[in-house]
Design a protein around this nucleic acid. Structure first.
Lengths: 243, 243
DNA sequence: GCTGCGTTTTGATGTATATCAAAAGATAAG
DNA sequence: CTTATCTTTTGATATACATCAAAACGCAGC
């Protein structure tokens, strides 16, 4: 198991977690909330660069990200990596493991991270008891399906600059929902990882960054990105602007 | 609702359905099976070319395909279509609608089809009662997530011929699991729809078909495809052949 | 400070696939 | 059977992006 060495284990409670409204159903009463604490068994620390789980490993738990930033990826037999997602605080990873009881992707921490370990048996048991939790689990899985649908659309139909624009807008939007700036990002991933996620090469990512920068749409300093002209970015994603 | 006009409604039972082992948990006893029949409310017929549901429509039910063949797709605001999947008998569609209570893609019948309508409220209620059904629903959703992960890998990392080879192999494998030939397919979708699914243009699809045909790997006559050399196809998908 | 290593940028060139175009087959309608 | 329409194939050309290469930059260790 990838967790073994560096992770520490802490018993904690969802009821006192400030991320609760992101990863748990909000409509819980305080009574129910105490029962809900049973979902989370422990917490684990994952250092930057370490694997939370890897392809082929037995699946036992879902993980709710408390702090830090992850990437998930799959690989071709020849070793080509495809990043399938970037996940931040409040998001759930490990859903891929349910179908075969084995994980089918790798999850790597892109910065030091802390996750809540939710044994899937607990999740299922409490889901039977609490319809609101059941519904929540279903929604999380459905959301992931919808997200991947839109990634297929992005990779299959859009041009490189449109992809990067969509990526940046998605990222700030999610960060903003977590109380961060609406216009400034510190990227946790390399150009290569962005490229893998968006189905393009790192050089193409870099060129797109430079182009946006030249046009005054963004300011780029390494992994710091400031969005100077969000409407312009949106227009790149959706040229007709009819939405 | 897209269902209104041409669909007919029949009350039916999973317990007597020969597709049961494909879309329902197999480990059900006969007693439980009777309760399980409550999941399916009705059946609907969908004619070729008709929509089962469309993007934006309220989500109420999942659909189990009994006969026929569907495609699901999403669109850019400008109208570019991305086919997100092809579904056949025993497969479940509509999972995209759970997260927002609205469908986020379109489902079109590519041939006359019959679906079992499973109101999601029923699914959730019985899931609470039957852990085996609950687990089954989770697995179906997880499977879809994993499938889409591999589609991202395919569209993002593979070349056109590899994509088509992977597509054909996946299709025969699923058809074979349903008792059809291991080597012969009658495609239900156009070159354009294949291209949309695989992130390439219809001409490129056609060229790849012709290439495989010239090399004696397949035989193509319009929508009829015979796989003459499956190992060669597999080698195209996975050149190293180490798996 | 300097040195070495990984990341990012930028430029020159190559190539897979898109695009444009037209012919050849299928399918359906009259 | 003939005509019209749609799908598929094939060819010629264009182009977005990949690839190859090298310089610039940032960061960690000395």
């Amino acid at each position: 198991m990838s967790l073994a060495i560096t992770s520490t284990t802490i018993k904690v409670a969802c009821s006192s977690c400030n991320l609760r409204e992101l990863c748990m159903p909000i409509s819980f009463g305080t009574e129910d909330m105490k029962r809900l604490d049973e979902v989370v068994a422990t917490r684990h620390h994952v250092k930057q660069g370490e694997l939370l789980f890897r392809d082929g490993e037995p699946f036992k738990s879902l993980f709710a990200i408390r702090t830090g930033f992850f990437k998930t990826s799959v690989s071709t037999p020849e070793g080509h990596e495809q990043v399938t997602g970037f996940q931040m605080a409040g998001e759930i990873i490990g859903l891929d493991g349910i179908v075969t009881d084995q994980h089918s992707c790798n999850a790597v921490a892109l910065e030091d991270a802390e996750v809540c370990v939710m044994p899937f048996a607990n999740v299922e048991e409490l889901s039977r008891e609490f319809p609101v939790l059941q519904r929540h689990v279903h929604k999380i899985m459905s959301r992931e399906i919808v997200r991947e649908n839109s990634m297929m659309l992005l990779i299959g139909n859009m041009r490189s600059e449109e992809r990067l624009a969509a990526f940046l807008l998605n990222l700030v939007q999610r960060l903003h929902a977590r109380g961060f700036s609406q216009s400034e990002i510190v990227l946790r991933m390399s150009r290569e990882e962005i490229g893998s996620y968006l189905g393009m090469k790192l050089e193409t990512v870099s060129r797109a960054f430079s182009k946006f920068s030249d046009e005054g749409i963004i300011e780029v300093k390494q992994r710091y990105v400031a969005i100077l002209n969000a409407p312009a970015l949106k227009k790149i994603v959706n040229p007709t602007g009819c939405v």
